[in-house]
């Protein structure tokens, strides 16, 4: 297929089809978004509850909403990327969506362009909802200065990409859509409790922090704290600093590992399809 016969129209490019898929994914999401609403609303609900329950009881000078906001943003990003993709793709493999696509000339990359776009739309929505609640309801502080916003931006992008790729790779683990939720939510929940989202890292045993440090969520939460917390709060971290270099490195490595796993494991068909 190196030469093109005269009169043969070129196939539509992967980017064009990818953008068309992105538009389709977003419209479809808004049509039956109640199925994903739980995923989307959980961090917001926790922020609302914790902001009141732990008012003046965080053990720091930081108000409760400010205290939990960075970790909940990290959790929200992981939920719209990792949890959402792992479950949605397993379902699409199960219900024949992928099979139908495989029978068309859609380039595989276009499918991932569409998913990536959807995840970024959801991620932006997630952050917007959390910021609106934190600032609007509890008067929390936004990141102070362009440097803090920049930190938030790169942690947002790198963390979302790493978790998206892991989610796609994870979708190949589940045998069926029925088992996908359990396979995805259990490790995610374990990471939430060990990565400093709900419980400060200072109170966790060292070995547990070391295990959690192998995964992206700990570094996403830490990076978000670096963006939102006052500089002196770095003393609350186990290492006594934000350690953003390591955060960037770990998230970068997970992007590469996630991509490799995705390419190695992605299947268009279910096991029984052969």
């Amino acid at each position: 297929m190196t030469t093109m016969t005269t009169g043969e129209r070129p196939l539509p490019g992967p980017l064009r089809i990818g953008l068309s898929r992105a538009w389709l994914e977003v419209r479809e999401f808004t049509r039956h978004w109640e199925s994903v609403a739980f995923t989307f609303a959980l961090p917001a609900l926790i922020l609302l509850l914790f902001g009141t329950i732990f008012d003046g009881a965080t053990g720091t000078e930081i108000p409760a909403a400010d205290f939990y906001l960075p970790g909940l943003i990290a959790m929200g990003l992981m939920s719209v990327s990792f949890q959402n993709l792992a479950i949605a793709i397993t379902l699409e493999r199960d219900n024949g969506t992928l099979r139908r696509l495989r029978g068309t000339p859609m380039p595989p990359s276009a499918y991932f362009v569409g998913k990536t776009a959807l995840v970024f739309v959801l991620a932006l929505g997630q952050v917007a909802v959390l910021l609106a609640i934190a600032v609007g309801v509890y008067g929390a502080d936004l990141p102070a200065g362009p440097k803090a916003w920049a930190t938030m931006a790169w942690v947002f992008v790198l963390g979302t990409i790493a978790c998206s790729l892991l989610g796609i790779a994870f979708s190949s683990l589940a045998r069926s859509a029925k088992s996908a939720s359990a396979i995805v939510i259990v490790p995610f929940l374990a990471l939430q409790f060990t990565s400093g989202v709900f419980v400060p890292l200072m109170v966790l045993p060292d070995w547990l922090v070391n295990v959690a440090s192998l995964f992206p969520l700990k570094w996403m939460a830490q990076g978000m704290r670096a963006a939102f917390y006052p500089a002196e709060a770095a003393a609350l971290e186990p290492g006594g600093s934000w350690d953003l270099t390591t955060a960037g490195a770990v998230l970068g490595v997970w992007c590469v590992v996630g991509l490799a796993l995705t390419l190695a494991t992605f299947r268009w068909k279910t096991g029984k399809d052969g």
Partner: peptide, 8 residues
């Protein structure tokens, strides 16, 4: 087999 189509 029925294969899902986008719900639009």
């Amino acid at each position: 087999n029925e294969t899902e189509v986008p719900q639009l």
